[in-house]
Amino acid sequence: MGEQNILKVNPLPTLTWNHLMLNFANMPLEEKAQVKADIPAEFNGIETGMGGEFVSYVESHAGSVQLIRAGKGEDLGVIRDDNAGASAEVILIDAAEDSRVTFYSHVSGTKANGTQATRLVKVIAAARAQVTVIQSQTAGNDTMIGDDFGAIIGDEAGVHLIQVQLGGKAAFAGGCAALKGYKAGFTEETIYFGDESRRLDFSYVTRHTGKKTTTSMLASGALFGNSDKVYRGSMAFIHGCSRSKGREAENVLLFSPTARNRSIPLILCDEEDVDGQHAASIGKINKELMYYLQSRGLTESQARQLAVESRFNPVIDEIPDEAVRQEIHAYLERRMNLD
């Protein structure tokens, strides 16, 4: 790898004690010749989870953008990202009123070109539009992953983000949803897998400004080896977003005495008439469950794999490509087969 840029990414929306090292993350990316992408004005200024430095890096290195426009009432079906694995790529989705689009991008160990793969997806979802974005990766141990997302969501529109972060030397990922419209909705599902010395670093933010807006953020992960993970999940209820609701939950299974898990789920609230809840559960796998599975003839490794996949499968099943789903299952089996 040549010269590196150290970017400040995944900023916490409000600061806390510096010694926790959670206020932001440092992400090394390659210093390359800049080939700036031409970004339509309406997509400028959309906040993302990974923050301005990452956005600026990707936009100035991508060279071009994939612009997906769904016209009023149009259903584009599933659009597959043929450029996945590029060093830097920008995808912009403009979903007009009542339109529908699913964008799907997968980076595998064989697809990543070189030592980094960064993806930036920005979405504008107009009234009643439905947009689903799926970013998955099973990159090799030498690849730096950056997956960022930002959306502006209009009246009664729904945006669904799925991130499947299973490989890479390090994976930085984030998402931000600005719920501006009346009854705008955002759901986010993340699964992550850490082994060897993989570093995983996440930051998700939802900003509720519209009335009766809803958020659901669910993260589930498994940490093996010397992996080190940080999860930031923040819901901000901004004055005026009355009757809004937010739910956030993270479940982490720890399988190694040398893995490290850090979680910081935030609720920021200056609106009285809201309902926000978050929950986190971090710990070892249930001993009774392991005993039961082994008493039924599974090896310890198989039992572990079953426990992890049972949590991951509902998310993996949403990937609209059977071959990729198979690839992910094979990847997890290979990674978890420690017998």
Binding site: L254, P257, R260, S263, I264, P265, L268, I282, K284
Partner: peptide, 19 residues
């Protein structure tokens, strides 16, 4: 505002948080 941080450095432990 609620700003809880958790840092878990071993696998044989259980941490729960609700807000």
């Amino acid at each position: 505002d609620t700003i809880p941080a958790m840092d878990v450095r071993n696998a044989d432990s259980d941490v729960g948080h609700e807000a």
